[in-house]
Design a binder for these strands. Sequence first.
DNA 1: TATTGTTATACTCTATAACTATA
DNA 2: TATAGTTATAGAGTATAACAATA
Lengths: 168, 168
Amino acid sequence: MTAPLDRPPLAPAGVAFVLSGLGYHAAQRFRERLAPLGLAPRHVGVLTALASAEGMSQHALGQHLEIPPSRMVALVDELEARGLVERRRNPADRRAYALALTDAGRRVLEQVAALADEHERQLCAALDAEERETLLRLLRRIAAQQGLPQRVHPSLAASDRAGPPPAC
Amino acid sequence: MTAPLDRPPLAPAGVAFVLSGLGYHAAQRFRERLAPLGLAPRHVGVLTALASAEGMSQHALGQHLEIPPSRMVALVDELEARGLVERRRNPADRRAYALALTDAGRRVLEQVAALADEHERQLCAALDAEERETLLRLLRRIAAQQGLPQRVHPSLAASDRAGPPPAC
DNA sequence: TATTGTTATACTCTATAACTATA
DNA sequence: TATAGTTATAGAGTATAACAATA
């Protein structure tokens, strides 16, 4: 038996709500840390994927990350303008580029890794090492069951977000 | 001592990354469940807050949720157009409205609650009841330490997100 | 005829600033 | 002079579709 309240009985926030709010918060803080490098989280997504797949074409990388071609153009333009990525012509197929990280790109990725470590530490400050491990294990179980890829952030596939023109 | 890899040694995703990805995922799935009602998550944020603060002015509600006035206009316009919220003139101060949920608004909130329950269940399908409790406890500890409000979703204050015009 | 990358265009969401009316 | 709400405008980010070059 529950006691009557003087306000409408709001259900306490569940896992989904807290997860969503905390995930948003984590992403924003990461975005702020990244800003001084002139990068947004989506750029890190591309750089990181590229680090594991040098020489991949723009199209293939976009497919891996679920980023449509037209968006890849702008993204790679930006990274190339910052000197972090190179578009090399592929002699075997002159339609496609072979994308490559530059040395500057690799250095920036190291900076990003350091900054991500600090981000992780700050975000988890409330938990001890064992609790962090427990949390990570539970989160990974959910992520796996929900079909999320391990290293690709789902927000990169922004197609389902704000809603594009409704496919006239 | 770690064995050499044939690929660049990518650090495994930490709490921050998994949290952010899973939070995004949870938000998207919630958005999809909401779509048939003609609502977006932001509308639910406003409706929920209003349920605990009937008669509040548009401005005050906006401050509580950290939503700027001009955005509140559009948001309340949309909710009013759907017949979920009423703008009542406040005789004591004719500049301000007293916002109120309509009966339809209350019914929709009940539908949303049911749908959120199902969402919660589906999202946590990988965990048993005890694990869910553990997860929720850990997430709440982090949320509290990070200064997040308990019932207000941080994405409602979208000011820090994509970046508005840079305050010329 | 299919594929890689590009451009043109349109749409959503947002914030800032100027404005109206009340106080 | 300050406050509640509104409107006008501009910018960031995205997707679709038409297009060019190459296969």
